[in-house]
Amino acid sequence: MKILLLILSFSLFGQNKTCHEQIVFDFYKDSILKLEKHDGKVLILKKLKENNYSLWSKNALSELNFKLNDTAASIHNCGINEIKNIDSNTFDILKKWKKNKSFVYVSFATCFYDKNIVTIIDNSKKEKRIYYFLINEFGVITKWFDEYFIKP
């Protein structure tokens, strides 16, 4: 009986939710950002934002096989409202949204059937980019791509 209770306690309380947003941010800072040139530190909004679907192109919607009006889409929140592990040598933290300020921000994950989509908006340079990440329920990024939503 004690063994059964011990097993149940580990299975119920020992599981961590997969934070798709944090996994995507860590991938972005460790892999993508290292390949790109930025003048000085990158300004980042620490708080997660809702997806701005108006920036998504027809190409991205097709690539993700996502329909904006589909009722299957929902916001996924793993319990965090802001990004952690922000390297102060690479990033400066923006405390709150500023209208004409250039910065990077991460969206809450959008769940769509068996897919989770997280976007990172980078408007820290003249060309404005959106990064799309497909991530499975186990926290593995299965696909990612980027495109310009404003190109000078």
Rank of each mutant, 00 (worst) to 15 (best):
L8G: 06
S9T: 12
F10P: 01
S11F: 11
S11M: 12
F13C: 14
F13W: 04
F13A: 11
G14L: 14
K17G: 00
C19F: 10
C19I: 06
Q22A: 03
V24A: 04
F25Q: 00
D26S: 12
F27L: 01
Y28S: 00
D30V: 04
S31I: 07
S31F: 07
I32G: 06
L33E: 03
K34H: 02
L35T: 15
K37D: 06
H38M: 06
D39W: 00
D39T: 06
G40E: 06
G40L: 07
K41G: 06
K41F: 10
K41A: 01
V42M: 03
I44F: 11
K46Q: 15
E50R: 08
N51D: 11
S54N: 15
S54M: 14
W56F: 14
S57Y: 12
S57A: 13
S57M: 13
K58R: 14
L61Q: 13
S62W: 09
E63W: 09
K67Y: 09
K67Q: 13
L68N: 14
L68V: 15
D70A: 11
D70R: 07
T71M: 05
A73N: 15
I75K: 13
I75R: 10
I75Y: 04
N77A: 04
N77F: 02
C78S: 14
G79E: 03
I83V: 08
I83N: 02
I83Q: 07
K84T: 10
K84F: 04
N85C: 04
I86H: 10
D87Q: 05
D87M: 10
S88I: 09
